[in-house]
Nucleic acid binder design. Structure first.
Ligand code: DUT
Ligand code: MG
Length: 769
DNA sequence: ATTCAGCCGGA
DNA sequence: TCCGGC
DNA sequence: GAAT
């Protein structure tokens, strides 16, 4: 309808554009896993748990129709009395304006997008105090599950197409788990409709009853008197956040949840007698804005987006002060060394952030100087590959030298560390504290933002290689893979030993719940988000109320077992059981234990078994054998569940793997291991023909980061490496293109693949990245 | 603005 | 196709 | 998040 006024349109677009930026910082975190991996690795030894996930993807929020679910918990979090979740206490701009230059005074950087410390508490009172405790009205009809994306199609049934709401990437899910109720609660107004969409894209659920809401968003212009009846009609719990429409808009702009108690968001929405707290921070934005501008500038520029309002928040500041300070610290040679990396190392760095593990500092291992050097050389002389190597080479050379000197000790140490556990690592590393916190950040971003995760890991690797403590951002920025943002965080940690962003995220209840759900086998970020949005908070909620896939059901029922690590001896015992059964079926079949076991880890997250046989050219050749084996082991009670079988080999070819669960039989349980207790374990079987064994070994030995890095290296050289072999790349037609997989170069011999790639051979235990 | 590995199985 | 997983 |  064109009838709208120009002004209205302008305003509409303005809001729209403003809304689009954001980011958040929260996430789930698997601290345990992370910690474990670290430990394992190198200084820790090995392995990580199986973590899941990776995809960045958002998903459509689930829709469940009303009524299907039994009620989600009415109340979102435990902490309801005040604001739930993490939020910034004050909108950034305000803060900056704080008298006395608050930011500086604290010395805490204001931080980028994150929160403010609790120190400054603006709100004197919980805005909603006046609300009644819930009345528990008969809200019969409410769909309990409504959640997520569902639209509450309210009276004005205008919505319809929202069926397919596309969620923004994980990093922008600032409203995850929150349930918004609008007053009026419809999208008849275009501006409001846009706001609702923006909120939903960021993880908010639009609910249709006040009762289920965590946040009540009141249109501007309405006052407490206007909404009073609404609030009373449905019981409103005291913990609900009631704010005007500017609140979600500002949150979107700043990419973080802000403190909803600021006066500008509750103005006229509270009972008269409760004047909003006079907080300095709550000053009008305009005033503050000016003050901030300077500080922020840098960041602002960076963001440069449409938005522009800016991000006062972010800022931070660290930058400037830091630079000044810098001089105190001396740049060290080590830094220079760190800068250099060899080719594979570099790729490892590039790849390193994703999902799961990260472990070692490859420094020693990887580098063990030799490998690197060799690799480079080969690449260089060898042949083609040198695309971008020239530049790298240079660097590398320098590093190489340095490494060589260290080599002896380093290599050994790393080896010891890996297996031994703690020793090496922590030890001398002056940046241990920083690494630890950054590691926790990795855990927080896991599943949410693979690339960011990767960047953190890469930074950690760089820090590990330092022999001196990095205390300033300026210094940190010299390291490869560390940019402005990470440098600022490193400085923050060095300065006060903590990282606000991390603390903030850790406190957010939904992150804890999300993290819990993500540990369930078969549950990824998409499903976990939906469940959190629906209000589920425990595994029992899922078990009883959620709709679960077959695998998820198993994951929940055996949650503890499946999240427990498997001691090395048990991996061997389990493999022995399989081998024995196989011997009766076809004695010529061979088994190779891969995964973290092959890399020498003391414990593994699962058992990875390669099943191969001489003279086989296709995994299909082994299918009959596998079927018999599975049947036999299942009958014996060894295999307890099938999570992903090769069932009827589906379309794309190779039905080559089998994933399931198994339990060590008591008869195979060593007497010296204490009392027997059956524990469900994850087991992955991979069928590999002799012609693909080398590639399969590389793949199944990992670790994942190593695989990704070597695959990346291959692609940079115009080749393609996958679990079946190394191929000459074929152009893929835009549409995947089935044929042409490229000519196989090698698949049979693991070492030969390394050679063809120009990568120096690395023993499995040297593949922790 | 693009890239960050490449693939398999289930629904 | 998307999701979860290796 | 960083590098390109
Ligand atoms: O995203 C991934 C995950 C795994 N792998 C490969 C490498 C890995 O070593 C192997 C087995 O996977 P698993 O998840 O079992 O990892 P792991 O290295 O064996 O560690 P864990 O001890 O957790 O089992 O599959 C990949 O290539 N990409
Ligand atoms: Mg494994």
């Amino acid at each position: 309808m064109e009838e709208r006024k120009l002004a209205e349109k302008i305003a509409y677009f303005k809001r729209l554009s403003a809304i689009q930026a954001e980011e958040n910082g929260d996430d789930a975190y698997d601290a345990e896993e992370q910690a474990h991996r670290e430990r394992c690795k190198t200084f820790h030894n090995a392995t990580s748990t199986s973590s899941r996930a990776k995809s960045p993807a958002p998903s459509v929020t689930g829709l469940r129709k009303p009524g299907t679910v039994s009620q989600p918990l009415p109340c979102p979090d435990s902490s309801q009395g005040s604001d739930d979740l993490e939020i910034i206490k004050v909108t950034p701009r305000n803060r900056s304006s704080r008298p006395g230059a608050a930011g500086i005074a604290d010395k805490t950087p204001n931080v980028e997008e994150e929160i403010i410390p609790e120190s400054a508490h603006p709100d004197p009172k919980p805005a909603h105090s006046f609300l009644h405790p819930l009345l528990r009205p008969r809200m019969t009809r409410q769909t309990s599950g409504l959640t997520s994306d569902n639209s509450p199609s309210t009276s004005t049934a205008k919505r319809k197409k929202q069926a397919r709401l596309k969620l923004l990437p994980e990093n922008q899910q600032i409203f995850r788990g929150l349930r918004f109720y609008y007053i009026p609660n419809d999208d008849a107004n275009r501006v409001r409709a846009a706001q609702i969409t923006k909120a939903r894209e960021r993880g908010a659920s639009w609910v249709r009853t006040l009762k289920e809401a965590t946040h009540v968003i009141v249109d501007e212009g309405l006052t407490y008197q206007d909404i009073k009846s609404d609030l009373m009609s449905d019981s409103s719990s005291p913990g609900k956040v009631i704010v005007n429409a500017n609140y979600p808009i500002d949150c979107v702009i700043h990419r973080i949840l802000l403190n909803p108690n600021q006066e500008k968001y509750v103005r006229n929405l509270r009972v008269a007698e409760t004047p909003p707290s006079p907080n300095p921070s709550s000053l009008p934005a305009s005033a503050q804005a000016s003050s901030n501008s300077l500080e922020i500038k840098r960041k602002q520029r960076k963001r440069s987006r449409k938005d522009q309002e800016l991000p006062p928040e972010t800022q931070s500041d660290y930058g400037e002060p830091l630079q000044n300070n810098t001089p105190s610290i001396a740049p060290v040679t080590t830094i220079a060394a760190a800068l250099v990396e060899d080719e594979l190392s570099q790729y490892i760095g590039l790849v390193q952030g994703n999902s799961l593990y990260l472990e070692m500092p490859l420094e020693e291992e990887e580098d063990s100087a030799q490998s690197e050097a060799t690799k480079d050389d080969e690449a260089e002389s060898g042949s083609e590959s040198s695309k971008d190597e020239s530049s790298r080479k240079k660097k590398r050379r320098t590093r190489e030298k340095i490494q060589l000197s260290q080599e002896d000790t380093t290599w050994q140490d790393s080896f010891a560390c890996m297996k031994g556990g703690t020793r090496g690592a922590a030890v001398d590393n002056p940046n241990a504290a920083t690494i630890e916190l950054l590691q926790l950040m990795v855990g927080m971003y896991e599943h949410r933002d693979d690339w960011r995760c990767k960047s953190y890991r890469r930074a950690i690797t760089a820090l590990r290689q330092q022999t001196r403590k990095i205390t300033t951002a300026k210094e940190a920025m010299k390291l490869p893979g560390i940019g402005k943002s990470l440098a600022a965080k490193i400085e923050e940690i060095a300065a006060d030993g903590r990282l606000r962003k991390l603390e903030h995220a850790q406190q957010r209840p939904e992150n804890k719940i999300l993290n819990l759900f993500l540990k369930v086998y078969g549950v990824g970020i998409g499903q976990a988000n939906k469940w959190v949005s629906q209000g589920y908070r425990t595994l029992e909620d899922l078990r009883e109320k959620a709709k679960l896939s077959t695998n998820q059901r198993i994951g929940i029922e055996h949650f503890d077992d499946l999240n427990e690590r498997i001691p090395r001896w048990e991996v061997e015992a389990l493999a022995a059981v399989v081998r024995e059964a196989a011997g009766d079926i076809d004695a010529s079949v061979e088994f190779i234990i891969g995964g973290s076991y092959r890399r020498g880890s003391d414990s593994s997250g699962d058992i990875d078994l390669i099943i191969t046989k001489k003279r086989t050219r296709s995994s299909q050749n082994l299918l009959p054998f596998l079927e018999k084996l599975i049947k036999r082991l299942t009958d014996d009670g060894f295999l307890t569940a099938a999570l992903a079988s090769f069932s009827g080999n589906t379309k794309k070819g190779h039905g080559s793997k089998w994933h399931g669960c198994c339990v060590l039989p008591e008869t195979a349980f060593p007497k010296d291991k204490g009392k027997y207790r059956p524990i469900w374990r994850r087991i992955d079987l991979l069928l590999v023909p002799e012609t693909e064994l080398g590639a399969a070994l590389i793949y199944f030995t990992g670790n994942d980061i190593f695989n990704r890095s070597i695959r990346l290296l291959a692609s940079k050289k115009g080749l393609r490496l996958n679990q079946r072999g190394l191929f000459k790349d074929v152009l893929r037609g835009k549409r995947g293109v089935t044929y042409t997989e490229g000519d196989p170069l090698e698949g049979r011999d693991e070492k030969r693949i390394f050679e063809l790639l120009g990568v120096k051979w690395r023993e499995p235990h040297e593949r922790w990245c």
